[in-house]
Design a protein around this nucleic acid. Structure first.
Lengths: 341, 341
DNA sequence: CTGAAAGCGCTAACAC
DNA sequence: GTGTTAGCGCTTTCAG
């Protein structure tokens, strides 16, 4: 394989009989170039197959035209059958595509990769950074932001009044409101022993959805039954079994993700419970699976792709130095009623 | 937000009272530096929070330490509920993580993005390029390879004896063999009206799986019934309906993907057919869904993540200039029998 | 073992 | 309009 020498600006300039500056102008679409010269340059570029060296360009412009999406998760988790990630990436991708920016997707589930990703961003590989699916009080967003790198999160960052005073802007959905609507729906339908399978309590999505459940049950004066899962189907199966063992007579369960809700359906079926006559089930996400499960799931629909789009759009503005951007954008959720509840 | 000036080599050198060259040596782990000096430099680096500017470094080293995975698909397709993409990315990610390379994921479903991705690679943003899920006779892999960029494909590239003589190496799974095993299983079980829902015929996976079906039916002297899908569940539903309309008495169907097989199950249920007593169904992929469908699917399991890992490993070797690498690696597939057939 | 100096390929003032 | 020039921040000979 011959690593053919790639032509430089210099080569194009010589061939077209002009200066490097002129070639640069043509390549970058400057208007103040005579048509004849522009044409000559364009021809030379084509003949030589010239493509600007991005490293050289970035070195002087301080721009890379690419943007990172950092997922503090292992590849195994990001690309499991959890459809959260696809949705967020899809939204981000659409928006960056329109802006002709390159999306650089980075997983940072391990400590090692966490560091690698940090170096990558700080090294100037990208013009800005987005975060999604954050766990605990991850210092990385704040660190990068305080280094002057444009940063935005999807999902409210979990953190006390920020140490460095650097408040990272974020986009999120209304977990709390959606869950309240769901649980009220169960209450209104006459359910009285309403359990929940909550998500991981080191993530905003897990915390806020559990809070919504608790607040609504308090409001209705009902007792709580909580089991924890980690958003996977398998954990949903386990949690449902636990709940049934604790309270064989429960008549409803709000599950903090569709994946876990699917697991719950499986466990309920195994236990001989009918849905919804014995036990009503409501999920959260409204992925396609909820329409095809047996029975189809009532869910809280959250606009994940929109969240991705919004996040990308905000970041692009940040990079362009726009001011007066909101510190937080919260998108609405919606209860979608189907047979399961 | 203050865009704090990032320290340069120069700054570190001044602070440590040494030359830029020495700092560079320390940063890059050269052994030939006195311990005392090394320590002074390291301290200066820490104090200043120095991180090398990647653009400047790449400009001289011609290396970026990152690698692209190009998916000639729209974001909508890559991040649909098709679990092929997650699996391949997971495999690639694991391998690159181990090599401390950065994975740059790029979708190129549109013509515009196809061009953008080409420029990105040619501009030297990455040290090498992987392709997956290719359609038709995509010239891009060959183009990049002929430009001296290390390239490898997952899935045998569809192309006649290559124009430029640049044969792009690839990794694939044994579609044909797996399908033959599946269809023989149906024949052995006494099925005689065996239909197939084939995948898109502009992709190797679609073509080879159909070929396997056809070859095995020929071998058994049975008639063929073919409907086409595009690997989505919806297309599986449609195709199954078409097949039933054409031959209401069919007693088996080999479906070229799990997603479509799931669609077929839905359509069969709608049509009042029982699986497997009336109609046996076999899918291809062996994703988790096939264990949870009703009934659980017999499938051909293909090691997609392994394909990703192998592809990444081969590419890293290519980049390191190793010789004698195989032009093709084909991984085995395996029939996994469950209730549906 | 360390420093000086020469670029890598490009853009952006600044002259003409 | 177009050319000249001065770096961007780093690595890497080549001396010493």
């Amino acid at each position: 394989m011959v690593t053919r020498e790639r032509p430089t600006l210099e080569a194009v300039a010589r061939r077209a009989g002009v200066s490097r500056a002129t070639v640069s102008r043509v390549v970058n679409g400057s208007t103040s170039v005579a048509a004849s010269i522009r044409e000559a340059v364009t021809r030379a570029v084509d003949e030589l197959g010239y493509v600007p060296n991005q490293a050289a360009r970035s070195l002087v412009t301080q721009r890379t035209e690419s943007i990172a999406l950092i997922l503090p998760e292992t590849a195994n988790r990001v690309f499991s059958d959890d459809l959260f990630f696809p949705a967020i990436i899809r939204g981000v991708g659409v928006e960056l595509e329109a802006a002709d920016k390159q999306l650089v997707l980075m997983m940072a589930g391990s400590l090692k990769s966490h560091g690698r990703v940090e170096r990558y961003a700080v090294a100037g590989h990208v013009d800005g950074v987005m975060f999604a699916s954050m766990h605990g009080e991850d210092p990385l967003p704040g660190t990068l932001a305080s280094l002057g790198i444009p940063v935005i999160c999807s999902g409210r960052p979990l953190s006390l009044p920020n140490l460095r005073g650097t408040q990272v802007p974020y986009v999120d959905v209304d977990h709390f409101g959606g869950v309240c609507a769901a649980v009220r729906h169960l209450v209104a339908a006459g359910r009285r022993r309403i359990a929940t399978i909550a998500g991981p309590q080191d993530m905003v999505a897990g915390i806020d959805r559990l809070a919504g459940y608790q607040a609504t049950l308090d409001e209705a004066g009902l007792a709580q039954h909580v089991a924890l899962g980690d958003f996977t189907r398998e954990s949903g199966i386990q949690a449902m079994r636990t709940l049934l063992a604790d309270d064989p007579k429960l008549d409803a369960v709000f599950v903090a993700s569709d994946m876990m809700a699917h697991g719950a359906l499986i466990a309920l079926k195994d236990a001989g419970r009918r849905v919804p006559s014995d036990v009503a089930v409501i999920g959260f996400d409204d992925f396609e699976i909820s329409r095809y499960s047996d029975p189809p799931l009532t869910t809280v629909r959250q606009p994940i792709a929109d969240m991705g789009r919004t996040m990308a759009r905000q970041l692009l503005r940040l990079i362009n130095g726009e001011h007066g951007l909101p510190d937080a954008v919260v998108l609405p959720t919606e209860l979608v009623v189907r047979e399961s509840a």
